[in-house]
């Protein structure tokens, strides 16, 4: 189990977290919180993190030359290839370890961080290849549901109805029409993987999944909902709260898939309507002003309901039946 927050504070009183101050992410951005939680968990367990980053907000805002907000080894290669890049790093580690060229007592943890663009879209092939090859790495998706680094363009993760600059809410078309890809199932389909969802508002759940990922003998994937306060058009102080609401509305169910076995890690006793999540964000404002707004919300509600039922059924069906 992860350390309680107060205990973590003690551990990190005089210890580097791995990401430092002086980065240039927006005020209230959830991505640096995610990185902190992930790296603190690894470091508290005695791992030496090595970080790869896909091009994106987190990348440009943390490494403006000559400044770096990283105090762990870090590599950014390009947008679409963080998984391939970290697989090269991890393979180098195995080769050099075998050759006795690096200290045997060091516990390395290889992380690839990427946004949804670098994961769902342009980086999907590289991710799939690295998962299939079975590299021991942890891929952390900070999902802000759009190309936020470049000013709010649509991605394969943008939810329907969200206003983006490349799928704007227009007079004819109500913003993005398509549902998000189910990235966790795509990843879980590689079978010999650990895949899980998490949110900053449930830190113990998140950090225990990082722990599992670290211990898992193979590739691991964490999909973490990471609000973009700027383009979700919301109060920047509420970036944590909204992820709690995402769980409570079934928008972002918390579960994990370990070698094909599904387990829901948070089952709220009652749920809130998905409209509460939607109405908290300005990116849905224009679609909510449309005459067919109720219908659009109902479709989203139906979807999250069905997906929840399906998750429950999968949990039941896959219990004690790992696929590998």
């Amino acid at each position: 189990m992860p350390l309680p927050i107060k205990k973590l504070a003690e551990v990190f009183t005089n210890k580097e977290i791995g990401i430092t101050q002086g980065h240039r992410m927006c005020p209230g951005c959830a991505a640096p919180m995610v990185v902190k939680m992930v790296l603190m968990t690894a470091k508290a367990l005695g791992y030496e993190p090595v970080v790869g980053l896909a091009t994106g907000c987190l990348e440009v805002s943390t490494t403006v030359f000559p400044y770096t907000a990283w105090s762990v080894p870090y590599i950014h290669n390009a947008f679409e290839n963080v998984a391939a890049t970290i697989s090269g790093v991890e393979t180098a580690y195995r080769a050099l370890k075998k050759a006795g060229k690096i200290p045997a007592d060091k516990k390395y943890a290889f992380f690839a961080f990427a946004g949804d663009g670098g994961t769902y879209d342009i980086g999907l092939q590289s991710l799939s290849g690295a998962l299939e090859r079975g590299h021991k790495f942890i891929y952390v998706l900070y999902d802000n549901e759009g190309y936020m680094n470049t000013g709010n363009q649509r991605s394969g993760s943008t939810p329907p109805g969200a206003d983006t600059t490349t799928a704007p809410v227009g007079k004819q078309i109500p913003g993005k029409l398509q549902l998000k890809k189910n990235i966790v199932e795509i990843v879980a389909g590689h079978e010999n993987v650990y895949a899980a969802t998490a949110v900053p508002a449930e830190p113990m759940d998140l950090m225990s999944k990082v722990e599992k990922a670290l211990a898992f003998d193979g590739p691991a994937f964490l999909a973490i909902l990471s609000p973009c306060v700027r383009f979700w058009r919301m109060d920047e102080s509420k970036s944590v709260d909204i992820t709690k609401l995402a769980v409570e509305t079934k928008y972002w169910p918390l579960y994990e898939v370990e070698r094909g076995v599904y387990r829901i890690t948070r089952k709220p006793s009652s749920f809130k309507p998905v409209s509460e999540f939607v109405k908290m964000q300005g990116r849905f404002r224009l679609v909510l002003e449309r005459p067919d707004a109720d219908q659009i919300i109902k479709q989203l509600q139906d979807y999250v309901d069905r997906r929840w039922e399906r998750l429950l059924a999968l949990e039941q069906a896959t219990k004690d039946k790992p696929i590998r």
């Binding site: 101050q21 002086g22 400044y67 770096t68 990283w70 762990v72």
Partner: peptide
Amino acid sequence: VIEPGTARKYK
């Protein structure tokens, strides 16, 4: 950037 955490100098 061969020195870690230089962003700390950035206000």
